[in-house]
Design a protein around this nucleic acid. Structure first.
Lengths: 243, 243
DNA sequence: CGACACTTTGAAGACGATCAACGCCGGTGG
DNA sequence: CCACCGGCGTTGATCGTCTTCAAAGTGTCG
């Protein structure tokens, strides 16, 4: 088995599957390299493949008919592409998938995914759980877009970044460009840039790609229900899957 | 079997299940009445039940930590509540469920839902498909909130209403209050009201609860664009003209 | 050094939120 | 029968926020 597959075996998608079965399942996957800027698939293509990111970062970019572009997700290693479209039945990718940096993916056929989720009920339920979490996050996102200010969106984003990548909030580097982040947050680059200036007054300093958040208490102003230290265990689960 | 269950058997959730098995499954359900304004469950409650709406309309209302309220969904008969939370594993409802009008629901236990989706792979996959569609819609919603103007949001909403309820766009009545619609669209009632005035210039007339959409050129796009979950949303195209 | 992508800053304008006042209607109670 | 009230919706004036357009600054890499 390719070394790239090793870390894949850890994914929660495969929880409850024996090592032997995992090996058997993963043999159906082919590694697929995607260099920076390259498009893995395009919005509207038939959704024939399911991908797990082994290394690198992928961007899901949607172009609306009226010319707007919005980055739906920025996915890191261990996250997956295509499962929604495949399971939805309508079978067309809803967004372009583009490599933000040189990346390695494991490619499976759509029929493989459908087959194994039938053959291995545990995997089917894991998939169900994964997708249900995505519903949750997507609804949260819509809520944020509708009710939060740019400052709140940025603060919330930085916080999630720390959780997802295990960064120390007091000092870390942005893992991708400001242009990409602005697109992810659905705001203009100019607005994002100005917002970062405003946040300095609130203990959040960003110089170039370096971020340091000195006053964690301040962050609470920008926190949403799922990011906060709520009683809810969903918090942590959800945060672990944030892009 | 209660008469209320009859129409439930038609749901796509039960596609591929024999009539005999359907009957067996549905016997686990209890009818539950919920009168106008009454809360079925609250945001944060343990997600112990799955509901299918037999008659009436339910509103999913989320309160954000900073005091904003947003209506996530307005659900009609045949639609379901709670499946996401149950399947997500973390098991707390993310929003309040409130009856918009006197409603009848079929209640199942959360464990029932998990059990049957394991026992009946077809049902498990139907559920997966249902939830995957919700991801799509929720992402679309977030995109709309981020990129569309109030006019576009309202136009898009009216289109969907026609598809969902089978209304003739040239003449129909709003099925619920403007206050509720505004909340669903994440805008203030005042903004919604003003937006309706603006739309008159674009062939969309709303007087009281009566709506008539005259612009046939836009109408053609509406019909095909709405019914599908398809990402290539003709809605957007039709709404380009709206500033 | 110069080309180019990325980012910052400024000034003007569009848009939606807020606050406030008013009109409309159905129900209730004197 | 009328007066009052509360829920609902409309309209106006004002304000803050985000976008747009434009220009200039920063960095990297050939």
């Amino acid at each position: 088995m390719p070394a790239a597959l090793e870390n894949i075996r850890m994914l929660s998608l495969f929880d409850g599957i024996s090592d032997h079965d995992k090996d058997r399942l993963l043999q159906a996957g082919h590694t697929h390299k995607c260099s920076r800027g390259q498009m893995l698939y395009a919005q509207g293509d038939a959704a024939n493949h399911f991908y797990i990111i082994s290394r690198g970062t992928m961007q899901l970019l949607r172009t609306t008919p009226d010319g707007h572009e919005k980055t739906l997700h920025i996915l890191k290693s261990g996250q997956t592409l295509g499962e929604n479209e495949i399971m939805e039945g309508c079978s067309r990718y809803v967004a372009n998938a583009i490599a933000v940096e040189d990346s390695v993916l494991i490619e499976f056929s759509a029929t493989w995914l459908k087959e194994v989720s039938r053959q291995y009920p545990a995997l089917g339920l894991n998939l169900l759980s994964l997708i249900a979490q995505q519903v949750h996050l997507a609804e949260l996102e819509a809520e944020h877009q509708a009710t939060m200010s740019a400052s709140q969106l940025v603060g919330c984003f930085l916080q999630r970044l720390c959780v997802l990548y295990g960064f120390n909030p007091e000092s870390f580097e942005l893992p991708y460009s400001k242009t990409l982040i602005a697109s992810r947050l659905g705001m203009k680059l100019e607005t994002f840039s100005r917002t970062l200036s405003k946040l300095k007054k609130h203990g959040i300093h960003v110089e170039g790609t370096h971020v340091s958040i000195h006053d964690l208490a301040q962050l609470e102003h920008y926190v949403c229900g799922f990011c906060s230290i709520s009683d809810d265990c969903a918090t942590h689960r959800a945060m672990e899957n944030l892009e």
